[in-house]
Design a binder for these strands. Structure first.
Lengths: 212, 212
DNA sequence: TAGATTGTTAATCGATTAACAATC
DNA sequence: TAGATTGTTAATCGATTAACAATC
């Protein structure tokens, strides 16, 4: 299957398909139709079919897609089959939660270590190390790290980001609620809780108004 | 200023404006132009102007918008001025991190308590309580809670979600990587790390290919 | 064969961008 | 007045949806 260019909107839907496909028990029927997938996820079936056409080499009319093959295709497309190493900066509550989260492996993400200006003294045995920030550059260089995760306060995020880029990082996952200025070839993905909250509180406000 | 209907895309950009406006020091000039805002955030200036027109009652040509007034307008529009109470289900690592995060207050979100099938014995003094799941319904009813935050494993998310809706919740913030089936009047906001990771690993793959 | 299902081509929709008129 | 800046109207762009032809 040759690699097609997919738009960001398609890309963002792929993990949802994958999660659903994986949640189907082993013993179930080996095939699944785009219609079934669409219904399960509350989406349009044409959209699902178009999305799948981008990553798989096709389903068979009347039968659908082979579930296992589809899982493999999406995982390969998303690059979950080869792991990406990452470093995390900012070992506060959120940082440590992400550091300890086992689920990332499933997505091909491997956080090697965290860095902090003040590494906590009591580090969990066998957990991933939290190192002083001074060691960041040498660490990134020796491990050829390409992704950095920022979980420092917003005020320090740009500074940390600059440092990461100087260390050779190409992609930044930013949990700080601030815009980051970066060169064109660097991608910043914002994980912005404030955005989600805006959507939620908007809905609640509308609900309240409807009621009265 | 009468309340306009804004699209989700506009809504999602508002928190970014707000964060930037708030990051400007008190002492700076009292006005800011849409052009300046756009440049700072790497956005188009027409887009910024259109967005602001939805929430503020206007800037003045040649001068721009009054910063303080703009902050107030956006906060009011997003409902950050009156707090929303929420409960959190699933006191694992992520759940506890969110529970302990002070920053939500700024967005008008107040997590009252967490619930778990097995509340941990050692709860931080003065922190928010982690209660057994059986107490969820009475708690929600007495506190008239409208928002629920789901941080349980994907396999249990739907069950928890149903329970929340039965308790009168109107908006769900779902951190589990799974689709939730809900009635039409309930909003589910997915906080999907897998989605962000997909975008990031895609970028890294493209970078690698360019290099060789 | 008939019908379910796929994949594609065309139409619609919404959001972004560009052009321009209004204003301080 | 001139110029910066706003706000609006029109044009473009991209993504979603609808219609339909292809296939097992």
């Amino acid at each position: 299957m040759e690699r097609k260019e997919v738009s960001k909107s398609v890309l963002k839907r792929l993990p949802a398909y994958l999660a659903y496909l994986k949640s189907i028990p082993e013993g179930a029927a080996p095939n699944i139709s785009a219609t079934a997938l669409a219904n399960a996820l509350g989406m349009g079936e044409v959209q699902v079919r178009k999305d799948l056409a981008m990553v798989s080499d096709g389903g068979r009319p009347k039968i659908g897609y082979n579930r296992m093959a589809l899982i493999d295709d999406i995982e390969q497309f998303l690059g979950y089959d080869n792991t990406t190493d990452a470093v995390l900066i900012g070992a506060g509550k959120l940082g440590q939660a992400l550091l300890g989260y086992k689920g990332f492996e499933e997505y091909g993400l491997n956080i090697l270590a965290a860095f902090d200006v003040e590494p906590p003294a009591d580090q969990a045995d066998g957990g991933k190390p939290i190192l002083p920030l001074e060691k960041l550059e040498s660490f990134c260089r020796t491990h050829k790290v390409l992704m950095g995760i920022i979980t420092v306060p917003a005020a320090n995020a740009q500074e940390v980001c600059d440092k990461l880029i100087a260390c050779g990082i190409k992609a930044v996952w930013n949990f700080a609620n601030t815009h980051l200025e970066v060169p064109a070839n660097i991608l910043v993905q914002y994980e912005n809780m404030a955005t989600s909250l805006a959507v939620l509180s908007m809905h609640l406000q509308a609900q309240m108004k409807d009621k009265k």
